[in-house]
Design a protein around this nucleic acid. Structure first.
Lengths: 194, 194
DNA sequence: TGCAACCGAATGAACGTTCAATTAGAAGAT
DNA sequence: ATCTTCTAATTGAACGTTCATTCGGTTGCA
């Protein structure tokens, strides 16, 4: 029921991970609560001890996953370094996160293009705001970017990274470190101040 | 039942349009067949005269929508013109299609990030292949693009356009023709041979 | 002893699909 | 033109299944 329950037994996290894995395979509505429970090694009723409903479970999963991503993306960021270097680092981190967390990539994409995102636009990861969004705001204020609306930047960038990661994960190709760097530069060349 | 039924009464198209509109609002599984029927002005059973199941209805809707998009995107394309001009024209056409067909944009995004797309990767619009994919193959063969894998191009481009169109549709901003041109140039500057 | 965590069978609503019956319209016969 | 026949299109109530959620009871821990 409650939003802030201690998860001493790890069942809350087990449910979240189970949901994440199943949604990748079957989609939101293709995954019944009974299956989520089974895979988490938990009774169906237990889920409702931690989450009000299937809907809030998915929304809380979204925040959970995006928190994890925010930490991964901001890893190794160093304010002393040149802006472009920091930018490329973030791009590569995000690409790697996607590739190493296929479930998360697939889930996030589904979530963003589902009615959930429209109905709960305020529910988002605070960590992501603080670490990632902040970086872009800094870049905008200091005129590192082309003169386009700032809110266009993030989705533009994401589109390219998601495309690359999805492609790698499809197994059709194996990108080298240089390939990924090239992808990061496609993005940079597009949005940098020309 | 049959795949190639004449639609003399327009009920097949009515069902497709009804489905498109409802999916935008409620998502795939949030829209029951009964509601699709009601909105189309048709009995529930009639849907099954034209489509085998809800699943095939959605797959056929995908092809239907993408056919429409292919025609809109390729409008005014002229092989005599410089490649960059043709490219920008295609970008602007696709942007405009998204903005003028919000239902279609939302549906396509949902479809692509759903298990449908993974389960039926071969079901796609022939028109889109012939008109749009062909153009990019031409650009690749003639080395207009940066040296990245060709299959990375389309999704990279789409990511930016979808971002822009979604933003415009959110009502947060009204893009001028020049703004859209600028977006098209972000894409071009990113992927052109540097 | 008390309370939170947990269980899982039971509940009831929602939904995709079916099908027997009805209608509409075309083709053929007079 | 009018009537007859046949088929395809259409209807919507009924069916059977699935699934989210509930709840009375049990366990484990402080």
């Amino acid at each position: 029921m409650n939003v802030q329950l201690e998860d001493t037994t790890g069942k809350r996290v087990a449910v979240l991970n189970s949901t994440l894995a199943l949604i990748k395979e079957y989609g939101f509505h293709g995954t019944p609560m009974s299956l989520i429970a089974k895979r988490a090694g938990v009774a169906a009723g237990t889920i409702y001890h931690y989450f009000d409903s299937k809907e809030t479970l998915i929304i809380e999963l979204y925040v959970h996953v995006k928190d994890k991503m925010a930490l991964a993306v901001a890893a190794g960021d160093d304010e002393e370094k040149p802006f472009k270097d920091r930018f490329i680092n973030l791009m590569i981190n995000q690409y790697n996160f996607y590739v190493e967390n296929e479930n998360a990539l697939f889930f996030l994409e589904q979530y963003m293009s589902s009615p959930f995102a429209k109905n709960y636009p305020d529910r988002d990861s605070q960590l992501f705001m603080d670490k990632v969004i902040k970086f872009f705001e800094y870049g905008i204020e200091n005129a590192y970017f082309r003169n386009i609306d700032s809110r266009l930047l993030a989705p533009t960038i994401k589109g390219t990274l998601v495309a690359a990661a999805t492609f790698q994960l499809s197994g059709q190709i194996v990108f080298s470190k240089d390939d990924i760097l090239e992808v990061a530069n496609v993005i940079w060349d597009g949005i940098k101040r020309q």
